[in-house]
Amino acid sequence: MQPSIPSDLDTGPRRAPRAGGSAASRWAHVALAPMAVTAIVAYLGAALWTLRVSLSSSRSLPKWDFVGLAQYARLFHNDRWLLSLENLALYGLLFVLACLVIGFLLAVLIDRQVAGEGVLRAVFLYPYAMSFIATGLVWQWLLNPELGIQSAVRSWGLRGFRFDWIVDPDRAIYTIVIATVWQASGFVMVVLLAGLRRVDPELWNAARLDGIPTWRVYVSVILPLLGYSFATAFVALLAAAVKLFDAVVAMTQGGPGIASEVPAKFIMDHLFGRANIALASAGSTVMLLTVVTLLAPVLYARSRARRVPS
């Protein structure tokens, strides 16, 4: 089994049978055509349309004039956009790291055949199956200093207890990390568990014979074997981080002030409420370029790594 996203992008000309004669391959192309057309028209077309709008002076409706890079200039003079990018970088780093670490630990925990594996797996995966608009609201209540954890602990007698990150402009973004890590770790766990289950039991037997401690086997032997599973989880987490929106809307609405704003919310706000689709399109284009720049080296390295042995 191969991770889905990289393998999609891998089927370049290198893989395509060049023989050109076989009928099977021709039919394969015919069968793929609708998908290819959809991808080109819907994705590429929409991306080009967005790029074009970002070079215009459009407000609530698209206009086809040309103002050069004026919207981009405005974007990068906008405090909220710059803070959104900063937040996204910080959030993305912490979110991806924490999910991978926690997801891996959970997967190992279950892999060690603890009792009630099925129940635990369901419990860990459950948050991922729920809409964040609902669970985000519960997190908001839990974290609210007047209603949630802080006031509960205080009512138990610890009068000096403080946990008010969600109303603290310097810490609000961390509460988003906490809540979304809670949600996404289960997904990582499932992906990595699938990888762990494919590890050859002989490896464990060999390690046991050599008297190698279990943790050492995980770190030095199993981790490297899980490369593809990690890559899959990584790409999915990165995509989730970049499009982060619902958690912020449900928990902080970008506040206090603009402290927990993120690019996707900036784009949505300007697309509709603020009736400035040109600026929103400029933001979307910047995000697209960022993602491509982030992913390109990963995909390139992987495609090279696979080409070498063949």
């Binding site: 407000r59 609530s60 906008n78 405090d79 909220r80 402009p169 506040g255 206090p256 002030g257 603009i258 402290a259 706000d269 300007h270 409420g273 603020r274 009736a275 400035n276 600026l279």
Partner: peptide
């Protein structure tokens, strides 16, 4: 709506 939004961002930032 755009000016209004930019102003709301600023005032919210100042308030908090």
């Amino acid at each position: 709506p755009d000016q209004n939004g930019a102003l709301a961002d600023l005032l919210s930032e100042y308030w908090n």
